[in-house]
Each structure stands twice: as C-alpha cells, then as structure tokens.
Nucleic acid binder design. Sequence first.
DNA 1: ACATTAAGTGATT
DNA 2: AATCACTTAATGT
Length: 210
Amino acid sequence: MKEQLQNNYGFLFSEDLISDILENGILKEVKEGDQLINFGDTIKFMPLLLEGALKIMRQDNDGDELLLYFLERGDTCAMTMTCCMGQTKSEIKAVAETDSSMIMIPVQFMDSWMKKHDTWRSYVFESYNTRFHEMLEAIDSLAFLDMHGRLEKYLRDKVLVNKDAMLSVTHQEIAYDLHTSRVVVSRLLKALEKEEKIKLHRNKVEVLVF
DNA sequence: ACATTAAGTGATT
DNA sequence: AATCACTTAATGT
C-alpha cells in the first residue's frame, strides 16, 4: 500500500500528507462489478484510486441509469467533496468497472487536511476541476452527439480504462449504460463492424481502431 | 435434446 | 431512435 501510494501520488503529495494517509486510510480492494456507492448513501469515505477503474452513474426516478464517466488511478470522487461539506446524500452510484484497489479516507480528515497540507488542497481543487470537465464532456455527448457518436465515445473510454481492446460486455449492458435499448445498440454495433472499426463476438466486443 | 440467454432483423411509430 | 415481434445462434444442463 505504501509503494502504490508513493507510485501514484508521490509526486503530488508531501511526505507529511502521505504518512497521514497511511495512518488513517483504509485499503479497500473490490472486484469487477462490486457496488461501492449507491444513490442516497451517506458518504463516509473519500476514495483514492490506486489501481483499476470505477464507473460513475446517475440514476433517474424510475431507477434507470446513465453512465457519467470513469474514474481511474490517481482520481478521486468529486461527489464526496461536495458531500462532506454539506452532509448531503450521494446523487450518484459507483460500481467497479475492473478489479480495483483504493485507499478510503474518512471524510472527517478533509477539513483539517485542507488547512494542514498544501499539496492536499491543490489536489482536491485540481481533481474537482477535472471532474467538472468530465461532467461537461458527458453533457456535451448527451446534447450534441447522436447515438452513433455516443457509442463510439463509450467504446473508446471503455478501452482506455480497461486497457484492453477486447471488451467483455453484452449489447444489453451497453444499452443500460447509454440509456437506450438493446436493439439500437445491436444495430449500431453491426454498422461499426461493417466499417471494420470493431469485431463482434458473443459477450464481447473487440475494438479495432480509435 | 432441451432450455436459456445473447444477438440479428424487418416492420412500425 | 424506440418498440414489437420474431428468428437465429451460442451456451449451459
């Protein structure tokens, strides 16, 4: 845990901060598909991703879901930051996209560390900023891209976080993430296969270009 | 061999 | 782009 923290955050965090993290953080390892945070949960920990990726989703009143963005190593969750200030409940859901490990920092340290550690404050502001940009990207993709474009972006992102062009995913799962129907996904994927951008297998999509 | 689940397709809105 | 209705293909028991 020490080494992983050094490797991923060593260049960002001061020695003091790293020892504070090691002292108070809890190492958590999750498997692909594990749910970390659900809609309405009270957030007690702030995750620092060491390895793997999480997918962050929004949920509507009927329980329908929509993927917002992926978190990777070096990232943290912006939702936790707003939550620990106002004691609000989570408005997002976090699921492990791949097997992941992270350090869970109890939120009560947020406040004092902001004052105590310059490097922590910068990190928090910095990641708040990048999260905000990811959010804008998600909005852009909803507002300005058609399904075809959204699907391509989805596949691109998914290949990036999985570090593997062979995606283990069904058409139905993609449909849930993009909040559309399986039939539409199947058709668009078929079209992409004809363009020779991807190759289709059962339960798998192989991304050839991007 | 049969049931189940994933994926492909035409037609309609 | 969504939905329906149906077919075909792959996989598990």
